[in-house]
Amino acid sequence: MTEAETHHRPGTPCWVSLMVHSLTATQEFYSALFGWTFSPGPPQLGPYAQALLGGRVVAGIGVLPPDRQLPVAWTTYLATEDAHATADRIRCCGGTVGVGPLDAGAAGRLVIASDPTGAVFGAWQSREHRGTEAAGDPGTPVRSELFTRESGTAAKFYAAVFGVESAADGPDHRALLLDDGRPVAAVHGLGAALPRERGPYWMTSFAVADADATARRVTELGGRVIRPPGDGAAGRSAEVADPEGAVFTVLAARS
């Protein structure tokens, strides 16, 4: 298993987290799909479990507050060295802070916000919890992508908030977020093709050995396939949803 960066640079995807209604049922789904095991997360976050693969932390799953009608979705967190300053920059750059800065004890501090286009994301200031500890092998998060209406506006927002670079990438309305010239996330401008009922969103891709077999396994476990497996520049992938409706991509990368 490939070890992820022990220190995630500001503006780079560092963590993925999912808030659901049934923690037990969701743990059973991802355990059967990816082979995850679980350990308790920071108590300040309420009922929350850290997903592990080979003993390394790869993701988090928590319980939605019963009094709030929030969508079930995977949230991408970007690293920051100062959650409070990041929250201020988010507001100054046209975004909205929904949660935080929230202290998670010795683990770190977090912010949950939406960018000016409406896409929800998180910012994580690490202390003891450094974020995702493994990458590349099946069951680990390998790609973070933002799907929005206009890529330029969104990319400039993240560049201004987190201090990363942004650059247009070809004629297909795509931009890249770069850290020291290295791509760390893609921003796709879909225009009118972005589903109105869904709105802008961050997508997490998890590595798998076989996208077709994993898509079939999703349906066997009570989830559904949104986009059947197909080949792309990064490899063969499928867009799927777990039993509570959280959407993610499974990607078998090209060797």
Rank of each mutant, 00 (worst) to 15 (best):
S144L: 05
G55I: 09
H173E: 14
D137R: 13
G131I: 00
Y77P: 01
T204H: 01
P138K: 08
P47S: 15
G60P: 00
C93T: 07
R91T: 15
G245W: 06
R127F: 07
A32C: 06
A135T: 15
A104R: 00
G41R: 00
V57P: 00
E81P: 03
G232Y: 13
G94Y: 02
P65A: 10
A154C: 13
T2Q: 12
A167E: 07
A168W: 03
H129Q: 14
R91G: 09
L23M: 13
R89P: 01
Q50N: 09
P229T: 07
Y77E: 02
D172G: 07
A193M: 12
H188G: 11
G46H: 08
A25I: 08
R68W: 09
D103Y: 01
P229A: 12
A135F: 09
A211Y: 00
G139N: 12
D231K: 11
K156E: 10
C93H: 13
T37G: 14
G163H: 02
R56C: 04
P243D: 10
A252H: 08
E3H: 08
L70G: 09
V218E: 00
A168V: 10
E81G: 13
Q69K: 11
L70Y: 08
T219K: 07
P42I: 01
W124H: 05
T6E: 11
G139R: 03
Q69L: 10
F34A: 05
P228F: 06
R89H: 02
S17L: 11
V161P: 02
T37I: 04
V16D: 01
R91I: 12
C14L: 04
V187I: 15
P228V: 12
D67H: 13
Q69F: 06
G222L: 07
R130S: 13
G94T: 07
T75S: 11
V184C: 03
P195Y: 05
T75V: 14
D103K: 03
T214A: 15
A209M: 04
V208F: 07
I90A: 00
I61E: 00
A209W: 04
P183H: 04
R91W: 06
A25T: 13
E81I: 04
D169V: 06
H84N: 12
R109D: 00
S166T: 09
C14T: 10
P43D: 08
R174M: 11
A241T: 07
G62A: 12
S126H: 08
A87M: 02
G108V: 06
P42K: 01
L53V: 04
E244G: 13
E244M: 13
P71S: 06
D137V: 14
Q44L: 01
G189W: 01
G54D: 09
Y158P: 00
G139Q: 10
